[in-house]
Simulated assay, not measured.
Amino acid sequence: MVLVSYPFQLADRSRILWDPALRVGQTYVALAQRTGEQYGLPTGLTENDRLGGSDVDPAVFQKFTQGVYDGYCSTNNFVLHGLLRGLLLPSIVMLEKGGGSIARNHEWEDGLLENLDAYVRVMRTD
């Protein structure tokens, strides 16, 4: 079987949160894992051998996304903002599709969520 996508689904398998192309999904997981290590946060992503993607534990993933968001808001480093933005936007979309949300710090976001609607549109699964 040749895999062409990398689905992210809730751990209870009740909903697919995102179904990107294989390399996109693999790249996202690699970024999330390394960032989680850097911040001391488990990602909540577990490889799913059956589908070839990842199961998402919503409670752990929420803590991961919140922690990375808080890290983003804790600095004004332009380069770090750019690096984290690419991970945070799809994370926030998946989190919200799974029923979660982040506690926002509007003062320190520095335009992070300006493109969130575009991510929501291109990450549709239904």
Results as ranks from 00 to 15, higher is better:
residue 1 M to S: 13
residue 3 L to H: 14
residue 5 S to A: 05
residue 5 S to Y: 07
residue 6 Y to S: 11
residue 8 F to E: 04
residue 8 F to I: 02
residue 8 F to R: 07
residue 10 L to D: 01
residue 11 A to V: 13
residue 12 D to L: 03
residue 13 R to W: 00
residue 14 S to M: 02
residue 17 L to W: 04
residue 20 P to S: 06
residue 21 A to I: 06
residue 24 V to S: 07
residue 25 G to S: 02
residue 25 G to W: 00
residue 25 G to Q: 00
residue 26 Q to K: 12
residue 26 Q to R: 05
residue 28 Y to G: 00
residue 29 V to A: 14
residue 30 A to N: 04
residue 31 L to P: 00
residue 31 L to Q: 02
residue 32 A to C: 03
residue 33 Q to C: 09
residue 37 E to A: 13
residue 37 E to F: 01
residue 37 E to H: 08
residue 39 Y to G: 03
residue 40 G to F: 01
residue 40 G to W: 07
residue 41 L to H: 13
residue 41 L to I: 14
residue 41 L to N: 10
residue 43 T to K: 00
residue 43 T to C: 08
residue 44 G to H: 07
residue 44 G to Q: 07
residue 46 T to S: 14
residue 46 T to L: 03
residue 49 D to T: 10
residue 51 L to D: 13
residue 51 L to I: 02
residue 51 L to E: 07
residue 52 G to P: 08
residue 52 G to D: 11
residue 53 G to N: 04
residue 54 S to Y: 10
residue 55 D to R: 03
residue 56 V to W: 05
residue 57 D to F: 14
residue 57 D to V: 12
residue 57 D to A: 12
residue 58 P to N: 07
residue 60 V to A: 15
residue 61 F to R: 12
residue 62 Q to I: 02
residue 63 K to G: 04
residue 63 K to N: 09
residue 64 F to S: 07
residue 67 G to V: 12
residue 68 V to F: 09
residue 69 Y to W: 13
residue 70 D to W: 10
residue 71 G to P: 11
residue 71 G to E: 10
residue 72 Y to T: 11
residue 72 Y to P: 09
residue 73 C to F: 01
residue 73 C to V: 11
residue 74 S to P: 02
residue 74 S to C: 06
residue 75 T to L: 12
residue 75 T to Y: 04
residue 75 T to S: 15
residue 75 T to N: 07
residue 76 N to L: 09
residue 77 N to S: 14
residue 79 V to I: 15
residue 80 L to A: 14
residue 81 H to E: 10
residue 81 H to G: 09
residue 82 G to V: 06
residue 83 L to S: 15
residue 84 L to W: 15
residue 85 R to G: 06
residue 86 G to D: 11
residue 88 L to T: 14
residue 89 L to V: 10
residue 90 P to K: 08
residue 90 P to N: 03
residue 90 P to Y: 10
residue 91 S to L: 04
residue 92 I to R: 00
residue 93 V to S: 01
residue 95 L to D: 11
residue 96 E to Q: 09
residue 96 E to V: 08
residue 96 E to S: 09
residue 97 K to R: 15
residue 97 K to L: 05
residue 99 G to I: 04
residue 99 G to V: 14
residue 100 G to N: 06
residue 101 S to I: 00
residue 102 I to R: 09
residue 103 A to C: 05
residue 104 R to G: 04
residue 105 N to A: 01
residue 105 N to W: 01
residue 105 N to Q: 12
residue 107 E to D: 13
residue 108 W to D: 11
residue 108 W to M: 10
residue 108 W to L: 05
residue 110 D to Y: 09
residue 110 D to N: 05
residue 111 G to F: 07
residue 111 G to K: 05
residue 112 L to N: 05
residue 112 L to P: 03
residue 114 E to F: 02
residue 114 E to K: 02
residue 114 E to C: 00
residue 115 N to T: 08
residue 116 L to W: 03
residue 119 Y to V: 06
residue 120 V to M: 05
residue 121 R to Q: 14
residue 121 R to N: 07
residue 124 R to H: 05
residue 124 R to D: 11
residue 125 T to N: 10
residue 125 T to A: 04
residue 125 T to V: 15
residue 125 T to H: 03
residue 126 D to F: 08
